[in-house]
Simulated assay, not measured.
Amino acid sequence: MESKAPEPVGAYPYTRRVGNLLFLSGVGPRQRGIKEIPGVKRDEHGNIIDYDIEAQCHAVFANVRYILEEAGSQWNKLVDVTVFLTDMKRDFPTYNRIYAEYFKENQPCRTTVEVNALPTEIAIELKCIAIID
């Protein structure tokens, strides 16, 4: 089965199992085999002029789901989610609304923090822990 998850941007695995827990490394919105980041708008010189946090949220949640399923777990087995945003004031309301749509049934513990920057010019990244059978 070919992976749907994006390639890691460094020398690390996406998952590590310890007992019945599955730890996920930070997951961003990049898509496998595509250089451009979802929702990023650039000027003619390649500089970022804007981004769509909604597009990045949907992409990052899809990536987490791919990684969980490829590792033998499921979305509804998430128990803890740490979310990193680069602009809490601008992006939190949209992210929070979309997060609520994805976590209607299963509501893992959650921490959301603002960070100065994330790798590869992304605006959101998730670090997750799930149960694996």
Score class of each variant (00 low, 15 high):
Glu36Trp: 11
Asn20His: 13
Ala130His: 00
Tyr14Leu: 07
Glu36Asn: 12
Thr86Asp: 12
Glu69Ile: 03
Ile124Gly: 05
Leu22Pro: 05
Ala117Lys: 15
Pro13His: 05
Ser25Phe: 00
Phe92Cys: 08
Lys35Glu: 10
Gln107Lys: 13
Ala100Lys: 15
Asp80Lys: 13
Gly72Phe: 07
Ile122Ala: 01
Val79Phe: 04
Ser3Ala: 11
Tyr99Ile: 02
Thr120Phe: 13
Pro38Gly: 01
Gly19Gln: 08
Pro119Asn: 09
Glu2Thr: 12
His58Pro: 10
Pro93Ala: 07
Asn20Ile: 01
Ile131Met: 11
Pro29Val: 05
Tyr14Thr: 06
Cys57Met: 05
Val79Gln: 13
Cys128Asp: 04
Ala62Asn: 15
Pro8Ile: 01
Pro38His: 09
Asp87Tyr: 09
Thr86Trp: 09
Ala130Cys: 08
Phe103Thr: 15
Arg16Thr: 04
Leu68Trp: 08
Glu121Lys: 05
Lys4Met: 12
Gly19Arg: 01
Leu24Arg: 04
His45Asn: 14
Cys128Val: 00
Glu114Met: 05
Ile129His: 05
Ile98Glu: 11
Leu85Tyr: 10
Ile132Pro: 04
Pro6Gln: 02
Asn76Phe: 15
Ile37Cys: 12
Arg17Phe: 03
Ala59Gly: 03
Thr86Glu: 12
Pro29Met: 02
Ala59Pro: 01
Phe84Ser: 11
Pro119Gln: 08
Val27Gly: 07
Gln56Trp: 06
Glu125Trp: 02
Asp133Ser: 14
Pro38Leu: 08
Asn116Gln: 14
Tyr14Asn: 04
Pro93Gln: 02
Thr82Phe: 09
Leu68Val: 07
Lys127Val: 12
Arg17Gly: 00
Gly19Ile: 00
Ile53Thr: 11
Ser3Trp: 05
Ile48Glu: 09
Arg65Met: 12
Pro38Ala: 11
Val83Ser: 10
Gln31Trp: 06
Leu68Asn: 04
Asp80Met: 13
